[in-house]
């Protein structure tokens, strides 16, 4: 489908919606009227003719809705309608609106806080480490086997209390189990 045409149609449908809708209304009504006229000319009573045509062709409003559904931007149109509907519902029921907003606010706040903390503690390099990829984890081993339990210590502890260990590791910063 030629893209330029679709973009142009989208623009037209969104900007000139009222005119497009009037146009569609007139088109479908004119078509129905044409068939009704034919039936009347063929000797049918006007009311009967209108009823028969509606039965044969469907209702004007339904046909119009079917056309609107396939137009470029029909999706945006639906979303807008949904948003307006949602806003109306919230307006009509302010207690629910406030409760929902508060629940969302509290949920988002809690998540943001927890993530901020976790981000600082777990995902970022500890403060003062210039080359985090060269951090080493030292633990104690006996006869070539790792010590059966792994105890770690906090970085500030190593940084402040183990200058000896840092020197030994050639100036590297170290996160280490305490070496006795």
């Amino acid at each position: 489908m030629p893209l330029m045409h679709r973009v142009f149609s989208l623009w037209r449908n969104l900007v000139h919606r009222d005119r497009i809708d009037r146009d569609l209304d007139e088109e479908v009504r004119a078509t129905f009227a044409l068939v009704v006229d034919e039936k009347i000319a063929a000797g049918m009573q006007p009311d009967d003719a209108r009823r028969v045509v509606t039965l044969e062709m469907g209702r004007v409003e339904v046909v119009k809705e079917q056309v609107r559904d396939i137009r470029a931007g029909a999706f945006a149109d639906t979303v807008l309608k949904d948003l307006r509907y949602g806003a109306r519902l919230l307006q009509r029921n302010p207690v629910f609106a406030v409760t929902a907003t508060l629940s969302l606010a509290i949920g988002i706040a809690a998540n943001t806080t927890i993530f901020t903390i976790a981000n600082a503690l777990l995902f970022r390099a500890p403060a003062g480490v210039s080359q985090p990829d060269r951090l080493v984890d030292i633990s104690r081993a006996e006869e070539g086997k790792a010590f059966p339990y792994n105890f770690t210590t906090s970085y500030p502890y190593v940084a402040s209390d183990e200058p000896e260990a840092r020197r030994r590791w050639n100036g590297r910063s170290a996160e280490a189990g305490r070496v006795d």
């Binding site: 045409h5 679709r6 569609l24 479908v28 004119a30 044409l34 062709m57 469907g58």
Partner: peptide, 25 residues
């Protein structure tokens, strides 16, 4: 029927394959 015809006509027009004009019938 109109329920299929008109959506199709409008779709084809939006695709640039048809052009429409208002005229006396």
């Amino acid at each position: 029927r109109p329920g299929s015809l008109f959506p199709a006509l409008h779709r084809l027009e939006e695709a640039g394959w048809l052009a429409s004009t208002w005229q006396p019938s």
